[in-house]
Design a protein around this nucleic acid. Structure first.
Length: 253
DNA sequence: CGCATTTGACCTGCGC
DNA sequence: GCGCAGGTCAAATGCG
């Protein structure tokens, strides 16, 4: 793969169907060499992962700072309704498992928001996340002409999880789903799961952040490193495939 | 017939 | 206390 070209498509052939008979015919010395190479690749990947985690941490810290600034500005704005302010408090504490001190009666746990891109022809406010939901209400809110739908998890009668789904004001093709609570049962089905775009709070920050950095060079560097590590070593891809198929421990370390 | 959805009424919290 | 807005309930309705 030529990462220096303008082609932004990125595919990795993991060689997921290696012939184990071929592997068995490889001399022992070569296997040792491959093992050493794999360890080196593993080190590289570990280093990359560490770097990514550090970048994520710094971005997360930056995000929290920006959100705090953003909320302080909005608190001073008299244009917002009282309920909207309450929602901002709620979003501020999303995923932090902190209840608002102003609302001790209402304990919100594990609140998360996801955005899901839909096709323009798809007018249904349905987010396929693998769980079974029963719609129990719909309301048109003041700040959004699109109706907000209220769902309860219907897979288990005792499951307390609720979901609100509403189309985004900025982009009607984007469904914003807010989940409250935690499922007390396993995921019934992994099939037909709609891939969420990203946490809504992160979206705003990332849009600004990505304007400030050289995304092209960053992406090219990352892609080049990952592609090089993964594709130049057939043994690595064979080992990955073996691990996936459950044969990883057949390797004699 | 049973279940899910719809929708108007009602409840609740909050600011003035 | 009143009004507003979001959230929930439950009877009516639709559908397979």
């Amino acid at each position: 793969m030529d990462t220096s070209s303008g082609d932004k498509s990125f595919t990795i052939d993991l060689n997921t169907n290696p012939s184990l008979q071929t592997i068995n015919r490889i001399p022992h010395e070569m296997l040792d060499e491959e093992l050493i190479r794999m360890k080196e690749e593993n080190k590289k990947l570990t280093t990359m992962l560490t770097t990514l985690c550090e970048n994520y941490k710094s971005m997360h810290t930056h995000l929290i700072e920006l959100l705090q600034k953003h909320n302080s500005v909005e608190d001073n704005s008299k244009l917002l309704s009282r309920k909207r302010k309450a929602e901002d408090d709620h979003y501020c504490c999303a995923n932090s498992e902190e209840a608002s001190p102003k609302r001790p009666r209402e304990i919100r746990t594990n609140v998360s928001t996801v955005c899901v891109k839909t096709t323009p022809s798809d007018q249904s406010a349905v987010v396929k996340d693998g769980y079974h939901w029963r719609k129990y209400g719909q309301k048109v809110t003041r700040d959004n002409p699109s109706p907000r739908a209220y769902y309860k998890c219907s897979f288990a009668p005792s499951c307390p999880v609720k979901k609100k789904v509403q189309r985004s004001v900025e982009d009607p093709s984007v469904l914003v789903a807010t989940y409250e609570g935690e499922h007390n049962h396993p995921l019934p089905s992994q099939a037909q799961v709609t891939v969420p775009l990203i946490n809504q709070n992160v979206t705003t920050y990332l849009n600004k952040f990505m304007e400030d950095i050289d995304t092209t060079s960053l992406q090219q560097d990352l892609v080049a490193q990952m592609a090089h590590s993964l594709t130049t070593n057939p043994s690595f891809t064979a080992a990955v495939a073996a691990a996936i198929s459950g044969n990883f421990f057949e390797y004699d370390y």
